[in-house]
Design a protein around this nucleic acid. Structure first.
Length: 426
RNA sequence: GGAGAGAUGGCUGAGUGGUCUAAAGCAGCGGUUUGCUAAACCGUCGUAGUUCUAAUAGAGCUACCGAGAGUUCGAAUCUCUCUCUCUCCGCCA
């Protein structure tokens, strides 16, 4: 949702900023419907004011013992007229709001201008790929050979784009969850949060997944419950319709959840392995920040996410997304990409975004400022996607004999230094 | 799943058809006075939309008392549906 005043007072520059991210705003249509809607509203409100006054008069006359039958008859007709005008006014309002809902967030001035992912700018690169004197395998071969990953049985139990983990593979997933939660809570100052994994429509609207992206979600039949696509939804909506004290900012929360995505529209992409699944696990960082500090908080959040890769000694690079490649509600986004030797490429493992007041305005999240209550800024980023981290470890730490060395920081969690073949079912 | 009771502003809480333009208290904010870790008194204090005024302020109007629909000239108040909370019963990890 947008700041209406900004659109009205600076329509030209706003349209230019939107154009930089590939969205063309029809300025004439905007002005026309805005004026039409306000005219209709003014007329209805004028009639309502009139009715309120006359109704009061009816009450007064009745009290004085006068006959008000004629007056009431006349006012019934007035009521019908109001209902009629109100319906058309509401129709215009819905039209106007629908148009606003379809407009993406304004990019921050520091975001590089670009059309697509080729316009993204690398801001950091850390770590070096391990030297391997053999051809590195992709995780879908390594994992299956090790007996820790099974796609065929998952397809039988559920369908495509699902996976089953066995033995040390399952434990590696659990170890990563604990390692990430421990690091973010103990070292980065986030509060651990365990939210519901099902969310309602209001929450999805608040963070921007609805109404535009319903086809990306799974819905529970006969209910208003949806499987959460990311912990961003339940966690950000924890403060929906609330006003919190400014001195509590920034509020920093970290949550582990499974995430469910229909992946409509990505048929044929990343079909092999566990890079793109209908269900994946993720540790998510969420911040509620004061508008003056939100960009510094974004840098901090990105650093917190990168720190997981530093500790795991996995090579990565951080990209500032350009205007044309950012998500719908984001004002600025850093993607963290981890190196995958099995695929000889970098792969996104975290996306850290500042939404400015875009989500806060939709969800009604405010803080008590010095003069009046204001919308705060919401931020979030993966810290990290568990499945893709699992992939990165398996591929980067693979040995010539097909086993996988466990990164030092994970050894206490896994209670092992090596992942070896789990032969029970495979 | 069954029975019952509830939902009012940041919080507590009054209000069962017409000055509700929502009482009062607490907390917050501004001020006055007195002065030892404070008290008393005065003022202020919701959100959104919209109109006007030379206007990052003020004055008005409209809507909002869990949500939606209805009855009525007029609804926080009456009716219906739904959601949530609490109590008891049933079931259950």
């Amino acid at each position: 949702m947008h700041d209406l005043q900004l659109f009205r007072s600076q329509l030209d520059s706003t349209a230019e900023r939107l154009a930089s991210r590939g969205f063309s705003l029809d300025k004439n249509a905007f002005r026309a419907i805005d004026v039409k809607r306000r005219d209709a509203l003014t007329e209805v409100e004028r009639l309502k004011a009139d009715r309120n006054e006359r109704s009061k008069d009816v009450g007064a006359r009745k009290k004085a013992g006068e006959d008000t039958t004629d007056l009431q008859t006349a006012m019934r007709a007035m009521g019908d007229r109001i209902a009629e005008l109100e319906a058309s006014s509401e129709q215009l309002d819905v039209e106007f709001r629908d148009m606003l809902k379809g407009i993406p967030n304004l990019p921050h001035e520091s975001v590089p201008i670009g059309k697509d992912e080729h316009g993204n700018v690398e801001v950091r690169r850390e770590g070096a790929a391990a030297t391997m004197n053999f051809a590195p395998k992709p995780h879908w071969d390594l994992g299956v050979d090790l007996g820790i990953l099974d796609f065929e049985r998952a397809a039988k139990v559920t369908g495509s784009r699902f996976a089953v983990y066995f033995g040390q593979g399952a434990k590696l997933e659990r170890a990563l969850v604990n390692f990430m939660l421990d690091t973010h809570t103990a070292e980065h100052g986030y509060m651990e949060t365990l939210p519901p994994f099902l969310v309602n429509s209001d929450s999805l609207y608040g963070t921007g997944q609805l109404p535009k992206f319903a086809e990306d979600l799974f819905k529970c039949e006969g209910t208003d419950y949806w499987l959460t696509p990311t912990a961003e939804v339940p966690v950000t909506n924890l403060l929906r319709d609330e006003t919190i004290d400014a001195e509590k900012l920034p509020v920093k929360l970290v949550a582990y959840t499974p995430c469910f995505r229909s992946e409509a529209g990505s048929h044929g992409r990343d079909v092999r392995g566990i890079i793109r699944q209908h269900q994946f696990q993720k540790v998510e960082l969420v911040k509620f920040a004061h508008p003056e500090h939100s960009y510094a908080e974004l840098d901090g959040l990105t650093h917190d996410a990168e720190n997981i890769l530093r500790k795991l000694e996995l090579p990565f690079r951080t990209m500032a997304l350009c205007t044309g490649d950012m998500g719908f509600g984001s004002a600025k986004t850093f993607d963290i990409e981890v190196w995958l030797p099995g695929q000889n490429s970098f792969k996104e493992i975290s996306s850290c975004s500042n939404y400015d007041a875009f989500q806060a305005r939709r969800a009604g999240i405010r803080f008590r400022g010095t003069k009046k209550n204001e919308f705060l800024h919401t931020l979030n980023g993966s810290g990290l996607a568990i499945g893709r981290t699992w992939v990165a470890i398996v591929e980067n730490y693979q040995q010539a004999d097909g086993s996988v060395t466990v990164p030092k920081v994970l050894q206490p969690y896994l209670n092992a230094e090596q992942i070896t073949r789990q032969g029970l079912l495979t």
